[in-house]
């Protein structure tokens, strides 16, 4: 866990609103370190998690952007068209293509502002899936991809771990003994001839932005292979909030055995953390781990002082 005292001494982070976009006026916040020291490449671009505004669930995106900036990395969080503070699409692109268009325009504007051609895309949940699709299109500029709780698939071992964890849980045995377990309720209903309660479909409906990512295992595998071959470094993080899909550290390697991800992908596992990193300690742990990963092989590439373009963006 990153301790407050470990932060860089000159950590004054400055932020600027950047309004951009060719067809739709998009909005984002650029975080950078004001000290006259060298900035580090790449620039980190943080994508919307579902339909939550750019500051992120529990302000996760603002928090990460500022941690990156404190450590010399310029970070940018922005809203896709129709999300947060960006207006609805003004072109006729379908949402799936529109999101890619927004990311391309974002990288274009950042290239001009920050003078870098190297970017890391970071996203949580559907943001991770959108990041993967964008990395495929933008592999020339995207050098890294951080996927927090992306779409993933169960394995045989997932079921074993689930059963094992349940069997080891005192609550499970207590509910069985006290006849309060869901299974007992279902059996009781069957004996009494009651119909099981219908699933509330309205509750299952999700905004379209959640489901435009890649859903098929083979397609995701192909996409991961392609971006990796084009030099995109991969970092995955899974939380306990995703345990209904992902419940042991190395599951990813078993989901995509053909990719041999173990060789170079970073897999972080936070079994105690919620899906949106609700606890301060988990947020700090995530930031520290991502900074370590960022420093992995980019730390040697230093860029000049804050370029004049950034100063001029203040609205």
């Amino acid at each position: 866990m990153m301790d407050q005292t470990q932060r860089a001494p000159q950590t004054r982070v400055r932020e600027r609103v950047v309004n951009f976009g060719r067809s739709t006026p998009l909005t984002g916040v650029l975080s950078y370190r004001s000290a006259a020291t060298a900035r580090r490449s790449p620039c980190v671009v943080i994508l919307n998690a579902g339909v939550v505004r750019k500051s992120g669930p529990n302000n996760l995106n603002s928090f990460l952007a500022r941690r990156f900036a404190e450590n010399g990395y310029t970070a940018f969080r922005f809203d896709f068209a129709g999300v947060g503070d960006s207006p609805n699409r003004q072109d006729r692109l379908p949402l799936k293509e529109g999101v890619l268009q927004d990311i391309t325009e974002c990288l274009d504007v950042l290239e001009g502002l920050c003078g870098t051609r190297e970017f890391v895309l970071l996203g949580l949940c559907s943001g991770a899936d959108n990041g993967l699709r964008a990395a495929r299109v933008e592999a020339g500029r995207v050098v890294g991809l951080v996927m927090l709780d992306p779409t993933v698939f169960r394995t045989k071992r997932w079921y074993l771990v689930k059963v094992w964890k349940r069997a080891a849980s005192i609550d499970f045995w207590k509910s069985l003994v006290l006849l309060r377990h869901r299974w007992i309720g279902l059996m009781r209903d069957r004996v009494r001839g009651r119909e099981p309660v219908a699933c509330d479909l309205a509750r299952l409906e999700e905004p379209e932005l959640y489901t435009i990512g890649l859903q098929d295992r083979r397609e995701i595998s192909e996409c991961l292979r392609e971006v990796r071959e084009r030099g995109v470094r991969l970092c995955f993080a899974f939380t306990g909030g995703w345990s209904e899909i992902y419940n042991y550290r190395t599951q990813l390697f078993h989901v995509y055995p053909e990719l041999h991800l173990k060789e170079d992908a970073e897999v972080l596992f936070f079994p105690e953390a919620s899906h949106t990193f609700m606890s301060d300690a988990h947020r700090e742990a995530l930031a520290s781990a991502l900074l370590r990963w960022l420093e992995g092989d980019h730390s040697q590439r230093l860029e000049p002082e804050v370029p004049p373009a950034i100063r001029a963006v203040s609205v």
Partner: peptide, 11 residues
């Protein structure tokens, strides 16, 4: 209620 978040996603 406009302040009642729909689960963790907060919208």
């Amino acid at each position: 209620l406009p302040w009642k978040a729909d689960s963790e996603v907060g919208v």
